[in-house]
């Protein structure tokens, strides 16, 4: 009898621990960055054709077909090569990937889809959002470039991909809102240029480091942020969830070596706004969650000991 009671208590507490572990998700840690956004003095290369020739793509990341949420992609993978650099006022992403067909539906075309690439950022500092486009408590900021319409900033905030059962298991009881919004005009701060040659895209995405909008995270030299890449192949009718994505990658912005000068003509907003996740005060999210796990484990030990005594 005592044995079965202990087993019951143990399984309940282990269940709670597991649920909490799943809920907290990945934490920002002090690990070495995956990518370093190098500081370069002067102008960032804005022209994609020039970038294809002159910008060395130092990093490679494998992308895998999105297989979590409806509609599921065909199994598959892709690889992007890229470089990230900043000049103290603006940050540039140079992204290159192979695509056998240049899919750029323009005009009265209703059955074709564009090639596209996107970079996802957390809106808040602290705990990283759910990799599949965030949730209402922890949204993401996305820049999506499409071959036919260029770059657009988006905000996604509802983990739409998780089914009701998954959401409840993860204590995500927030009401489902519109999963993705076009960001307001003040967040449309991205410059883009693209060039396709010999079965390969080069897309240049540049934005000011600073942001006046709470929906767009400010980036500062010396700080770290996280990104996720996604690409779509229009020839395969890829759109929405039919895509290939990376996991979260950490990007460290090198310190500026000298006082920054505005060197690109993208936008003029350069002021900085620091935003933290709502309701978490000054305590980092990961600390709270770590403490919860420890408390539960201690509770587990105490109950187990009491049960043995009884």
């Amino acid at each position: 009898m005592r044995t079965s009671f202990e087993a019951l208590v143990l399984s309940i507490l282990l269940g709670i621990t597991l649920a909490i572990s799943l809920t907290v998700g990945p934490l920002v840690t002090g690990q070495a960055p995956d990518v370093t956004a190098k500081y370069v003095a002067g102008n960032l290369v804005q022209d994609a054709q020039t970038a294809m020739k002159d910008v060395a793509v130092e990093y490679k990341t494998g992308l895998t077909a999105q297989q979590i949420v409806y509609p599921l992609s065909d199994p598959g993978s892709a690889e992007i090569s890229y470089n990230v650099m900043h000049n103290g006022t603006h940050i540039a992403f140079y992204i290159k990937w192979k695509d056998e067909t240049k899919d750029m539906p323009i005009g009265d075309v209703i059955d074709q889809f564009p090639d596209a690439v996107a970079i996802q950022f957390p809106v808040f500092k602290g705990e990283l959002p759910y990799v599949c486009m965030g949730n209402t408590q922890n949204p993401v900021n996305i820049v999506m470039w499409k071959s036919n319409t260029g770059a657009e900033a988006l905000v996604s905030a509802s983990a739409y991909g998780r089914g009701q059962v998954q959401r409840e298991a993860l204590q995500m009881f927030e009401s489902r809102t519109r999963p993705i919004h076009t960001a307001p005009p003040e967040d449309q701060i991205w410059y883009s240029d693209a060039y396709y040659d010999n079965g390969e895209w080069m897309v240049v995405l540049i934005r000011p480091l600073g942001s006046t909008s709470p929906l767009t995270p400010s980036l500062e030299p010396g700080s770290t942020t996280s990104i996720v890449f996604a690409v779509w192949d229009g020839a395969k009718d890829e759109r929405g969830g039919l895509k290939k994505t990376s996991g979260w990658l950490t990007v460290e912005l090198e310190q500026a070596a000298a006082p920054a000068e505005a060197t690109t003509q993208t936008v003029t907003q350069t002021s900085t706004v620091t935003v933290t996740a709502p309701g978490k005060g000054g305590v980092p999210g990961w600390f709270v969650e770590f403490a919860v796990v420890i408390i539960v484990l201690l509770a587990l030990a105490v109950v187990y000991l009491l049960a043995r005594k009884g």
């Binding site: 409806y70 059955d111 991909g161 519109r178 993705i180």
Partner: peptide, 25 residues
């Protein structure tokens, strides 16, 4: 996937929210 299509409960008319639609078809 964007939950842009909905049915109005008051009269059953089915609409596409143009703010939510992303043109996936």
């Amino acid at each position: 996937p964007r939950k842009a299509v909905y049915k109005r409960p008051e009269d059953g008319i089915v609409l596409i929210d143009q703010n939510s639609c992303r043109g996936y078809r």
